[in-house]
Design a binder for these strands. Structure first.
Lengths: 343, 343
DNA sequence: CAATCCGATGGTAGCGCTGTCAATAATTGT
DNA sequence: ACAATTATTGACAGCGCTACCATCGGATTG
């Protein structure tokens, strides 16, 4: 790391420049555009930086350049496992770049989102990653006025603000229901909690797949605006059973609910999959090791985070993608809970 | 929000001051120390700010004041549910304050931690929150040279760098084992994954409780450095069974492992709690709704996050706590998995 | 060989705010 | 009533960096 700054005090770019025998502005260019320097100067500055242990003052840089090296990330929840994976992808791929991540949590409130976006605008971020495609008109206006690359994540749709990485929740849900139907089930319940826009789209996939088979029945649908928990899965399932006794299968909008349903089945001695098939969504890790193992829809959350950051950074640096919308797809992970019963 | 800045361009503090009929420095003080202004000026500046929709330039502020309004947070994992709760507490209580959170992830590497702390030091944060008490000597030196309040979270110990919020993993674990022993179990297995310092301390609590009862046996201990998953819980349990057939109970260092053990028991037709008691750690939400419901040690993670931020902000603003170490304790949540069998 | 262009470098002038300290006004004590 | 004290306020001078434009050889061109 080179010799630490001694009593002399602050190491500024000027000091580096002096030691390297160049002008401060040349030293500055060393950081921002090293290719513009001649080989010799580049090396001289480089060794001066190391020698002095120089660390750039980000505030000064931001003030002078009217830009920051911050990528804002707006997500609706910190607790939801789904976002943990996305965040990991985001932090992993921001590491090693010059950009730092600034996280903000809307708690599923679009008004809070507006407020946060306004805050971000004031800080002039280099780029922005926002969750979903259902911003308010005002939020969209803010995003468009930001003058920086924006990536919407978690889902895809027409009319991106700028770029998008995600997958179709509708298609994923439709595929899951098709699979359940193929197993011969007719009465497929739908369990939904916190009906945010993406969950809403999963419902639409369910509804359309059921309607296509002429099997849609509103009595099969149980939803709530309450946030998801495992316990809630059991509760919703109990509600469903209370409403209609004949149930072949249950599609849960996420894996926590599915696990809750499994536990409730165990409590009620309902054999899975013999008496009831269960399918979840997201494919959290525990789904594979439950007994019976639980079918789910795998989504590429970590990759979503990684791509979002890469796309934003590329765009900041002028490398715009050919296609602004990146569909990461999904995979149906068929497991025991929805398979023809074995043994 | 007042009239937006029109074509006129940038709204600087100078513009606000002009409109309010005061000097720029007075307007500046309006933000940093409003009580120092006379009632009348304060109102005049306040309405000028609203009138113009003024937003302070944080970079300029940081450059001039040699400080930022950033609280750095260093955690070892983004995926671990435990930290999700802590983070929620942190973000919740930083909201509404002037401070913003800068998150960094060490991935359980103490070298990475050193590197991140060095990075933070360069940015002169207003305060810092770091996980655990096992920093390297170098990390401690960096922390001490930071010249800002530091709170260590997740556990407590002697010799805080500055402040601490957490609980004793040793005591919590000891209490859990004592409870299992009280149920009459003698052969209590220990299952541990990713043996980070806090998990290590849980092991020590287990070991000492077992030794006190003259029941400690190294064959009962199965650990790995692999990160925790539910599936891993099953695997470790299988390993334990392969090693010693006689097992009364299993203590898992976290709830994911405990759930994995439960699933493995279901696979092997081992009745819980009749044939085996299971106790986890953290008390994640699903523990209460598993079948049978699973005993765990509840920790106050959200509160830990909240307190950490509050303590740091208070310290930044000169309100130092009387006691630098805050013990948030734990509660043993006794459930079916460790109770005398019913029915 | 002058005209042109280009890559590499430097000088000047702030970016928008606050630390420091001095200056002024208001208040108090004796 | 007058000095001493305490609240308010302001002037000045940067903080450390980069945008912008100017400069200056040297390569390219017809």
């Amino acid at each position: 790391m080179g010799r630490k700054q001694t009593k002399s005090g602050k190491i500024r770019l000027t000091e580096v420049a002096k030691l390297a025998g160049v002008s401060p502005i040349t030293a500055s260019r060393f950081f921002r555009n090293p290719e513009a320097l001649s080989e010799s100067k580049r090396e001289r500055v480089d060794s001066a930086v190391k020698e002095l242990g120089y660390v750039p003052n980000l505030a000064a840089r931001a003030l002078a350049s009217h830009r920051t090296e911050v990528i804002g990330v707006v997500i609706p929840s910190l607790t939801n496992n789904v976002f943990a994976d996305v965040l990991r992808g985001i932090y992993d791929s921001s590491e090693g770049s010059r950009y730092s991540i600034q996280l903000a949590n809307t708690r599923y409130s679009i008004l809070q989102e507006e407020k946060l976006l306004r805050l971000f605008r004031a800080q002039k971020p280099a780029g922005l990653i926002v969750t979903g495609i259902n911003q308010t008109a005002e939020s969209r206006t803010i995003l468009e006025s930001m003058n920086c690359p924006v990536t919407q994540i978690m889902e895809i749709g027409d009319s991106p603000v700028d770029m998008m990485v995600g997958f179709s929740h509708y298609d994923a849900s439709f595929a899951a229901i098709s699979h359940i139907l193929e197993q011969g089930h007719r009465r497929i319940g739908f369990l939904g909690a916190r009906m945010d826009p993406r969950v809403q789209r999963r419902f639409e996939g369910y509804r359309d797949a059921m309607k296509a088979a002429s099997l849609f029945d509103p009595n099969l649908v149980v939803t709530t605006s309450v946030p998801t928990t495992v316990t809630l899965g059991g509760t919703l399932f109990a509600d469903l059973l209370a409403r209609t006794a004949e149930i072949d299968a249950v599609f849960c909008v996420n894996d926590d609910l599915a696990l809750g349903v499994l536990f409730e089945c165990q409590r009620r001695q309902i054999a899975v999959p013999r008496d009831l098939a269960i399918v979840g969504f997201n494919d959290l890790e525990f789904m594979a090791s439950a007994v019976p193992s639980l079918t789910s829809v795998r989504t590429n959350r970590y990759e979503m985070g990684r791509h979002a950051v890469t796309m934003v950074i590329d765009a900041i640096e002028g490398r715009r993608p050919r296609e602004p919308v990146l569909n990461l797809g999904f995979q149906l992970m068929v497991r025991e809970s929805s398979m023809p019963q074995t043994t």
